[in-house]
Design a binder for these strands. Structure first.
Length: 576
RNA sequence: CGGGAUGUGGCGCAGUUUGGUAGCGCACUUGACUGGGGGUCAAGGGGCCGGAGGUUCAAAUCCUCUCAUCCCGACCA
């Protein structure tokens, strides 16, 4: 491709409405343009990166035995009513009517459509297992789209659905996808973790997320420093080991804590560590229950764990008036002593003695508080957020490290939820009708490209990994008016094309500075500069975008060398 | 959906407090010079100031409504 004939509109300045690096750089490098909130056009350069991503996904899915298909964006309401999600999905489901006033929605995911296909085409266990996937544009009317491609309303996703006769087979399908996903992200050259995840509304307790490690990631994850265990902090299990049996040495004492509301305030005021405090959170559940939750002062509540423990739809921190009613004091002074409502405590509390709690009255706390003697807890459980340094639940002596991650893939075991709701059954060997056991597997293609940029950039621009780069080699023709330079660059460009290398020739009549700045910005991994200065010696300059390493290469050797370097950068062994 | 902010040539911004002929930088067009890190000079083109209504002799500026976008919280690839 010739730059002079391409559409690659780079921006010198960062657009005001782009917050995260990937969004800023994708705008600046002429990859995308916004059309509406969370809705973007892919410009040619961005589309090439997206297509690279899609092709890697396609190849690894095919390798894993999945079969590509393509389902429609417009879904009839009937299918969604059948699964029950027409009512349940809420406002994120974009609904509309056709000319006959029939209800439709834009597909945010395709369990309904694929299940409909399978129930109409598969009747026997002999046709199983099956795993179908598509790479398609999804629409979810997100409450708050943000960060460019990171959370769009319209986005390109690969979604796959597996169908098995039995649970064991479904587990096998799941494992194949797990491996395929590892292959995909490894092949992209991304640093990532596959982590155990909460399966959320979909149910089941078998789910992994694939997280590209990046500081700007929206998710917190922990991984063990000595074994394979890794999990979303929402999910990360904690072990409490043999907690020392607490021995009370102090009497319950009421202390005045004027205007000391936060944990930090109280700890400082009483000259104790935050870990010597127990905080009491008043929460409300979807079942309209109000209860108290106890945590060590320096810990954070994990809402997901609590929601799962209580088996409710949601849990929220109580409104101020509810707190007042439950504790008799304004928010900030709740404590378990004398409290009438049910109390749930993080298991860690069991090992504590002589701690400080709120006094259920303004400016009052209790010190020297002890379990059983001063109050009782109806249930101890793992309800706190995991942090770095916590012991690993799967191995001896391992400790958690913590990371930020961008969720680029998620795999679930669905079980028979949809097959039962939609009556998707096959006959087994005994001629008995059985619901299919399903799994579903998603990858955000556009988001993965954004995540790759989030992980690979510097102050000058993006540093694209070779497998995702729109072009593999950039040939910069320094002065197009110099015949020697022009001829040499043109010749090299042609050689590269003949070798099957994806090359961009910067043949614009621009000053060198502009070409170098643009080259840094758009992040093509390998760059050859053809200029009069080095050409005199018969050389060109070969520079790697990633480490800036620069070598002089003879004009006649450079094409072969580039071919080798591109091949090396693309080499990939599936597995691990 | 709650809270906060912003809408002025393609991009980044000033002008709004205190109404009075719409401005700057970059980009763009033409010409010349220049040619290894966003170069110089000269001459140009482009915006009814998000939209609607109101106040006024006069509105980018004041008032009302509205739309859009961005950021922070509960959801998700």
């Amino acid at each position: 491709m010739r730059y002079s004939q391409y559409l690659l509109p780079t921006l010198k300045e960062t657009p005001a409405d782009a917050e995260v690096v990937s969004h800023q750089l994708m705008m600046r490098a002429g990859m995308i343009r916004k059309v509406a909130a969370g809705i973007y056009s892919y410009l040619p350069y961005g589309l090439r990166a997206l297509r690279k991503m899609e092709q890697i996904i396609r190849e690894e899915m095919d390798r894993a035995g999945a079969i590509e298909c393509l389902m429609p964006m417009a879904n009839p309401a009937e299918l969604w009513q059948e699964s029950g999600r027409w009512e349940k999905y809420g406002k994120e489901l974009l609904r509309f009517k056709d000319r006959k006033s029939a209800d439709f929605c834009m597909g945010p995911t395709h369990e309904e459509v694929i299940t409909d296909i399978i129930r109409n085409t598969v009747n026997s266990y002999k046709q199983l297992p099956l795993n179908l996937y598509q790479i398609q544009t999804k629409f979810r009317d997100e409450i708050r789209p943000r960060f460019g491609l990171m959370r769009g309303r319209e986005f390109v996703m690969k979604d796959a659905y597996s169908f098995d006769l039995e649970d064991a087979g479904a587990d096998d399908s799941y494992r194949k996808m797990y491996q395929a996903y590892r292959n995909i992200f490894n092949r992209c050259g991304l640093k990532f973790r596959s982590v155990e995840a909460d399966s959320g509304a979909i149910g089941g307790n078998f789910s992994h997320e694939f997280m590209v490690l990046a500081e700007s990631g929206e998710d917190g994850i922990v991984s063990c420093d000595s074994c394979e265990y890794a999990a979303n902090v929402e999910k990360a299990e904690l072990i409490y080991g043999d907690l020392a049996t607490p021995v009370a040495t102090q009497d319950l004492t009421k202390v005045d804590t004027p205007a000391q509301k936060t944990i930090e305030d109280v700890a400082k005021f009483l000259k104790v560590e935050a870990s010597q405090l127990v905080k009491t959170l008043i929460v409300q559940t979807s079942d309209d229950e109000v209860l108290a939750v106890l945590l060590r002062g320096d810990r954070e509540l994990n809402m997901i764990k609590l929601t799962n423990l209580l088996d409710v739809d949601w849990v929220l921190l109580a409104e101020d008036d509810v707190v007042k009613e439950a504790t008799g004091a304004p928010t900030g002074f709740a404590g378990p002593v004398g409290l009438k409502i049910k109390v749930i405590a993080d298991a860690e509390i069991k090992g504590m003695a002589d701690f400080v709690v709120g006094g259920n009255a303004v400016d009052v706390h209790y010190s020297g508080v002890n379990l059983e003697r001063d109050f009782t807890v109806s249930q101890f459980a793992d309800i706190r957020q995991a942090v770095a340094g916590d012991p690993c639940p799967r191995c001896d002596g391992g400790k958690f490290e913590s990371w930020r991650g961008i969720e680029v893939g998620h795999i679930f075991k669905l079980g028979t939820k949809y097959s039962e709701a939609m009556n998707a059954t096959v006959l087994d060997a005994e001629g008995k009708s059985r619901p299919l056991v399903m799994g579903c597997y998603g990858i955000g293609a556009g988001r993965t490209v954004a995540a790759a940029i989030e992980q690979n950039h510097d102050e000058y621009g993006m540093i694209l990994p070779m497998p995702l780069a729109p072009f593999q080699v950039l040939v910069t023709m320094l002065n197009p008016k110099d015949d020697q330079v022009r001829d040499a660059a043109e010749k090299l460009y042609q050689q590269l094309l003949d070798l099957g290398i994806e090359a961009l020739l910067d043949d614009r009549d621009e000053r060198p500075g502009i070409k170098f700045k643009d080259a840094d910005l758009i992040g093509i991994p390998l760059r050859v500069t053809v200029g009069a200065r080095n050409l005199k010696e018969g050389n060109v300059e070969l520079k790697a975008r990633a480490d800036g390493e620069t070598v002089m290469v003879g004009l006649d050797d450079v094409a072969a060398q580039l071919q080798q370097r591109v091949a090396d950068a693309l080499a990939f062994e599936p597995g691990n």
